[in-house]
Amino acid sequence: MAAVTSPESSTQSRVYFQTPPGTEETEPPVRKQGRVTVKYDRKELRKRLNLEEWIIDQLTDLYDCEEEAIPELEIDVDELLDMPSDGDRASRVKELLVDCYKPTDDFVTALLDKIRGMQKLSTPQKK
């Protein structure tokens, strides 16, 4: 393929691709899915991203600070999903939030409701 620039490139440069003469495309190019979405379910990834954004929002409210100033703590959703009961999960989250001066019960309850039914994102197997 050859690159041809537009003659009216005074304000913005644009590149147009032309197929060289004598070669015809018989089939349109096939769009491949990204590696991550092939190995994981896209819907589950979206749920996980939304959950993580919600957790950050809630922690900024609980600690009454900006996102960058949240104390170093990691709420590992996969770790919580591995636990046998909601009581164990609640205890673990409360243990992580021990230095928070605001009440955390509403956050813990809402978090447990949100992770209920989620799938653990296991590391994909290499082919």
Results as ranks from 00 to 15, higher is better:
D86N: 07
R14M: 06
R116G: 08
K114F: 01
D105M: 00
T109K: 04
N50D: 15
E67Q: 06
G22N: 05
P7M: 02
V36C: 00
L121D: 13
R46P: 01
E79K: 11
S9E: 02
K120G: 01
V93F: 02
P29F: 10
Q58S: 12
R89G: 05
C65G: 05
S6K: 06
L73P: 07
P29S: 14
I115G: 01
V30K: 10
L96N: 08
F17L: 04
Y40V: 03
D113C: 00
E44F: 05
K114I: 05
D106K: 03
D106C: 05
T60H: 14
Q125N: 13
Q18K: 12
M83A: 04
T26S: 11
G87R: 01
T5I: 05
Y63T: 04
C65T: 15
R48Y: 14
F17I: 06
F107P: 06
D88P: 00
V30P: 06
K114E: 08
K39C: 13
L49I: 06
K47I: 03
L45W: 10
L73E: 08
K32H: 05
R46H: 05
L80T: 06
P20I: 04
L51C: 15
F107K: 03
R14Y: 04
A110L: 08
K39F: 10
D88N: 02
L81G: 13
P71Q: 05
A3V: 10
A3L: 09
I56Q: 15
N50Q: 15
R92A: 10
C65Y: 04
R14W: 00
E79Y: 14
K114Y: 00
K102Q: 15
V38R: 11
R31G: 11
A69F: 06
P71N: 01
R116E: 13
R31V: 13
L62K: 09
T19P: 08
S122L: 08
D41C: 13
S91K: 06
P29T: 08
L45H: 06
Q119Y: 07
A3G: 04
K126V: 03
G22P: 02
L97S: 01
G22T: 12
I75F: 10
K120W: 00
L62V: 10
V36S: 02
E79F: 05
D88H: 01
T23Q: 12
M118T: 14
I75D: 09
D78M: 03
P84M: 00
I75L: 04
R48F: 12
Q125L: 07
K47D: 13
Y40W: 15
I55R: 11
K32F: 05
M1R: 07
D88A: 03
E44P: 03
A110P: 00
A2W: 12
D76V: 15
S13L: 09
G22D: 03
E67M: 13
K114A: 09
E52R: 13
K43V: 14
P29N: 11
Y63K: 00
V77H: 07
M1D: 13
T19H: 09
P21T: 10
P7H: 05
E8T: 00
R46Q: 15
E79D: 15
R48M: 15
F17T: 07
T11W: 07
R46C: 03
Q125P: 02
T60W: 09
